[in-house]
Design a protein around this nucleic acid. Structure first.
Lengths: 198, 198
DNA sequence: ATACATGCCAAACGTTTGTTATGTACGGAG
DNA sequence: CTCCGTACATAACAAACGTTTGGCATGTAT
């Protein structure tokens, strides 16, 4: 019933890795069955064996994106509240080569996601989830008096907007925005949130 | 020497318009010679007659992006300084259907721009120019005492980051972020910049 | 009137694409 | 040993792609 001379999941993971590699180098515009097969050193037959078609390949790529975002080696929050929020932001930014590759794919996914209704909905949900994560830290910070009271949802949107936008600029100008510069900008931004009204 | 029975520039503009239309609907992943020709109701021969190849088509699309960004019907700055900065930000955001289409193309261009060295460099320059524009307003605002002193370049980066990020969220969740909501977020953000240190 | 450059279509070219079919090797089940 | 389903390679396929070519207009220049 189950002749398994290779570990299916493990092999599928290999394909997944090849997809990642192709995307990081050539973007979604360069994602083809053959490119993935070449990156894997195999035939396209192997690729189709584990992923029915290109659509499934793309959908899976976006899944990896979320999984890696959640499981990447990230710094633990040193403290709840504002410090946690700052850490969450830093964990998103392209501060390391791996994180840069992830963000490059993330940003690249927007073109295809905006053109495909299914992917569009999936992406919208992902961002909603990210905002929810930020929001808990924001509300905790408000409870601790580290942030002024106000609509935590709106503030989460502002924080995510700033972070996303910084990702884009960092990707397009890595020399001007190396890791320390990004960190400094985050600190500047966070500081502007904590200031009280005059 | 110059038999011109049709206005070359005008016709080229028509092609340009067709490119725009295809991009707004299908993104850069759906930009093909035939799609452009179809949107124009002509043959692919016409397209190649005005643009040597696909690369030139893409490069031109990114040029339009900048031209339209500069020449779009935008609100005039009601006053120099902070008010001008706010207006600049609002002029970028997808507050109207036209502006939404432009931003959809803008965001979509990142995938291809990140994969092509030439386009990459061109995009980097564009963002540099946008930041320069923001910076003049920021410095004026600082001179007027509307903003606290500080590195105007870094502040411009922060402002552009926030604006870009808000564009992305608005595109992926237009129902949650209609024009008034976007305006409100900009005002919240600007307010956070003006607050003095406690 | 002749010559020539431009505008554009229609069609074809060779390549690349996603997908599917065929074949082989092989480990477990009976 | 005999099946049989899994794991691929090979290769074919039609469709779509970017690009090129040949030709027919139509206008200006001489």
């Amino acid at each position: 019933m189950s002749p398994a001379r290779t570990d299916h999941d493990s092999r599928r993971q290999d394909v997944s890795e090849a997809v990642w590699q192709v995307l990081a180098e050539h973007g979604f515009g360069g994602l083809t069955m053959r490119a993935v097969a070449a990156a894997l050193g195999s035939s396209t037959g192997l690729v189709t064996h584990y992923f029915a078609g290109k659509r499934e390949l793309i959908a899976h790529a976006l899944d990896i994106l979320e999984v890696r975002t959640a499981q990447r080696p990230r710094q633990a929050a040193p403290a709840p509240g504002l410090a946690a929020l700052r850490t969450q932001m830093l964990n998103i930014l392209p501060l390391t080569p791996d994180a840069a590759a992830m963000n490059r794919i993330w940003v690249g996914s927007w073109d295809v996601a905006l053109s495909d209704p299914d992917l569009f909905a999936a992406q919208s949900l992902r961002y909603e989830r990210i905002r929810a994560g930020l929001r808990t830290s924001i509300e905790e910070a408000q409870r601790l008096g580290e942030l002024p009271d106000g609509d935590s949802g709106r503030l989460a949107t502002i924080v995510l907007a700033f972070t996303h936008g910084l990702v884009v600029q960092a990707l397009f100008d890595p020399e001007r925005l190396p890791a320390p510069a990004q960190t400094r900008l985050v600190d500047d931004f966070v500081a502007s949130l904590t200031r009280r009204t005059a």
